[in-house]
């Protein structure tokens, strides 16, 4: 028996918005420790890693490990049926071929349930090595979304260069070039608005704008985003999900030929 109750169903709606453009379907692995998802996009350029800890749910029970293969377009249809303030419960029997979503209005006067068929998906788990990153940049997530959106007008690629002084995002193309520099914030009165850089070595890497823009669909999940970079390894873009977990995106850098 699997049962997970979340008072704020809006969190799950936001999680789905954050992955549905990169992935068509995905396996949600449910265990005693929580719900995990790891999947690459179809071109194997980026990877989504989602972790929702069991202790972040209002109620959580998972007697046996359960892998739920889910079509994300179908799940989106169901999550659209939930009000933002609704309480959501996901439920599945052991070895089930379907999962049930139950939504309760806050005053408990409306209850609805939706059953969704599960899919058998071939699972390919990737081992992500522990890496000490040369640069770890934290910045407001809305600022990062704005930068990715603005620079994608100039070219297909963004160069992210990080030094002790700050981080520079650059793009160039037919109409010209663009550079956006962010310095580390001096005072951190408002933590959510801070830009902070931890640097061991300076790094400059090139990434596809299109994927960075997909990642910024996670912006409503967190006021801050964390970018981790090392030379010639995938970028990590991490959004914390309240007290419940995180979503991480990995993106392979573009390589000079």
């Amino acid at each position: 028996m699997f049962e997970a109750r979340l008072v704020q169903s809006s969190i799950f709606k936001k999680v789905l918005e954050a992955i549905k453009e990169l992935l068509n379907e995905a396996t949600f692995d449910c265990s005693d420790s929580g719900i995990q998802l790891q999947a690459m996009d179809s071109s194997h350029v980026s990877l989504v890693s989602l972790n929702l800890r069991s202790d972040g749910f209002d109620q959580y029970r998972c007697d046996r490990n359960l892998s739920m293969g889910i079509n994300l377009a179908s799940m989106t249809k169901i999550m659209k049926c939930a009000g933002n303030d609704d309480i959501m419960t996901m439920k599945a029997q052991d070895n089930a071929d379907s999962v049930t979503f139950m939504f309760e209005s806050p005053n408990q006067e409306k209850m609805s349930d939706y059953e969704m068929k599960l899919m058998n998906l071939d699972q390919e788990h990737l081992g992500i090595p522990e890496t000490d990153y040369s640069c770890v940049i934290k910045l407001p997530s809305a600022e990062f979304a704005r930068i990715c959106r603005d620079l994608s007008q100039f070219g297909e690629s963004v160069v992210i260069s990080c030094t002790k002084e700050g981080v520079k995002f650059s793009a160039a193309g037919d109409i010209g070039s663009a550079n956006i520099k962010l310095a580390q914030t001096a005072n951190v009165d408002k933590e959510d608005e801070a830009v902070s850089i931890e640097m061991q070595e300076k790094v400059s890497l090139t990434f596809a704008c299109r994927y960075l823009n997909y990642f910024t669909k996670a912006t409503p999940l967190s006021p801050q985003v964390c970018l981790s970079m090392s030379a010639e390894v995938p970028l990590v873009v991490e959004y914390k999900i309240g007290e419940i977990g995180h979503i991480r995106y990995y993106l392979a850098p573009k390589i000079e030929e």
Binding site: M40, S43, H44, V45, S46, L47, E124, H125, L126, G127, I128, P129, S157, T206, A208, V233, P234, Y250, A252, P253, K254, I255, E256, E257
Partner: peptide, 14 residues
């Protein structure tokens, strides 16, 4: 020119 790398070369399939 730059080419897009793939994750398979960085992460091992378990």
């Amino acid at each position: 020119t730059t080419t897009q790398g793939r994750l398979d070369s960085f992460f091992k399939v378990i």
